[in-house]
Write a protein that binds this DNA or RNA. Structure first.
Lengths: 223, 223, 223, 223
DNA sequence: GATGAATGAGCTTTCATTCAT
DNA sequence: GATGAATGAAAGCTCATTCAT
């Protein structure tokens, strides 16, 4: 089941193999229930080598968190390219998010489930990443509000969206995304694109609008 | 810190004390890091008694999950009384949810964090409760859609909301609620009522409507 | 080889059994080479019980040192009864010392060899005991010097013995005793009494006097 | 802190660097607590090279013991030149001993503390060296006794010193010297010369004589 | 000659769990 | 009903030692 047992690899390669194995085990069992023995075996190396390269179980877990957090944020940022209009950025970011979490379920489990349930140094590391994303979303929301305000100025439109309010909305949107990621990954036949559409409908149009027959429509695939 | 050491209590009471202690320890440390020693000490009883009453660590954890899940669903159902209009039911249910999670943070941690990170029998138990709530929310959404459909029939309004769509929306709404619960519990000055308002705005009106200056307004407190 | 496996003993008894075993193993192997497995087996208990009662390897080693140091100092003090003349006190103290170390070779090894080679907290504990004994000997020497000074006053005898000088002499005497203890325990046919006589001759009369035919004579056995 | 990393040195030099490092680490940590990693690092070479040159940890430790024992006995023998009268030989030998141990504390620690606390093959190696020194001292004592016997023959002086007695006295003297070495190395302001004087007073004149005002006086420095 | 890569074996420590009273 | 006494099993970590280059 483990990696093919190839002898004598350069350190950098072995380290990645170890991290791959660790993410898988940590993601499925949790920090405490994961055993270094199992991780080493899955990585196809002996336990002392894991310690030689990664120092300790704590450090190994930390390294997993950092690697997966970096990969996820990179994926989202690559999706939500600057310069697009706010709703389009949000849409692309969500698609990237659902795609990435679907492809790396163990990494996502490490970040979303395991790191938060373990003690402080680790919870803080994921929290930092999450805060980064929430802030990003909050800015998108604020930007969209500003745009709407300009457009509606002539006809006495809305004022600015207070910052505190935007923070709560961003929290809600990110939480909904996290929840839909799990839903999409466990419900057969739900793609990343569909999950993103559902969430955009929910967030951009709102339930009320949906029911009145004005759902939000995703942009054409190749646009 | 532990319960006062009182001798000779009826079994039911002792069991509740043990569950109280267990929920607290499990909620804060996680399943694996929680030790039966610590739980027994906090409950003010000897370890063999814990085993006599609750069989094993697994059974004890299960009992915690069941008790806390029952308490949470009871609180939500009591809030969202049948007979109210759908949006009102949702509003009351959310308020009850935020209030309950704020008052029982350890129980909520057991359900939302710890049970899911531990292996299958336990994740399934919380998942069942969560599904129950998601289904309830889905029904509310569908009902509201039906109502909107009737009202709008004259003017060529929307058709029915497809079930699959409603499921995703419910998932998103519950996820947003879970996220806001953590946010409200860690952000000073955010009450259950405010969290519920934020979410209702997000869900019912949608970001788009918000930006056009038509936020959703909660009903008057005593209504 | 280990203690007879008797089940269910009161804690105090078990603790002594564990200390007995630990002194033996630590004395023969040294701190690092001694394994908790071996100690537990020799004590006739399981390893977790050793940890339950004695906490850690360090604490166990400490407990050994304290117990053996107390036993040795008690034995010496019981021998060198106050009120006797200084040379007599020294003689009795030495006899007690050689007797005790011969009867408890492992305990003596823990104090004299093992505790000193291990890190600071432990070396300090034995050092304290040794200092106590050196100081005691130093006082005896000083007292004897005072007595000699009084007796020799008429004929222009010696002045007082400077304290610094007395300290070095006491160090030398104690070192000689430690060395002779090992010698007596490994040389067949050398008793504690003979070791004490040799040292008294060395110390009290000096090599020069010995060679001039005036050896120091031990008091009659029953005196 | 380690040796400067110079490439391509002749084998003999590299070996001495390794032994230097090993003596330092073994002397301070003890055999078991010393790690081959630390020794190799301090010696400025890679671990496999240590094994190539010195075979195993046991062999390395043995080599340390042999080198340090040889150095110490050489120093003592160089001090106590043959041809001098016995008391003068003893005095010079002691001075050399105290000087050498003060200059090579780690080497002395290996011989006096660490080798004896580790298992049999090593204890025997130091014991051999020690026996050599004890025998040498014993011969000095016997020689002095013979001289005294000749001088005192006219006046009905002492008979010969029995061999068994001389062995005990030599043991005592060496033990006293070992003890004073530690004392001199830890007590500020005590030189090798002073330690030797104290011991000569103790051994040659005896406490009794000292107290009667006839201390032994060291020969003039340059004599 | 010299080293980066790798491991088998063993250590201390902890924990869920069970008797015997 | 309640507990002090006791343990099997496993986990994290380290170390002396060896290949393959």
């Amino acid at each position: 089941m483990g990696a093919v047992k190839t002898k004598r690899m350069p350190r950098a390669v072995r380290e990645q193999q170890m991290l791959d194995a660790a993410v898988r085990i940590f993601g499925r069992r949790g920090y405490r229930a994961a055993s270094m023995d199992e991780i080493a075996e899955l990585a196809g190396v002996s336990k002392p080598l894991v310690y030689l390269y990664l120092n300790s179980k704590d450090d190994l877990f930390s390294a997993c968190i950092r690697r997966e957090a970096a990969a996820l944020t990179a994926a989202v940022r690559a999706g939500a390219r600057l310069g697009l209009p706010a709703d389009r950025q949000l849409w692309e970011g969500l698609r990237a998010f659902f795609t990435h979490t679907a492809r790396h379920p163990d990494g996502w489990a490490v970040l979303h489930l395991q790191a938060r349930t373990h003690g402080e140094p680790f919870a803080a590391e994921t929290a930092a990443m999450r805060t980064e994303i929430v802030t990003f979303v909050q800015q998108l929301i604020a930007e969209a509000a500003r745009a709407a305000a300009c457009a509606g100025e002539a006809e006495g439109g809305p004022g600015r969206l207070p910052e505190h309010e935007a923070a709560g909305l961003a929290e809600a949107l990110v939480g909904a995304a996290e929840s839909l990621a799990a839903w999409a990954n466990t419900t057969p036949g739900v793609t990343a694109r569909q999950a993103a559409t559902t969430l955009m409908n929910f967030a951009w149009a709102g339930l009320g609008n949906l029911m009145e027959g004005r759902p939000w429509t995703p942009p054409a695939p190749g646009a």
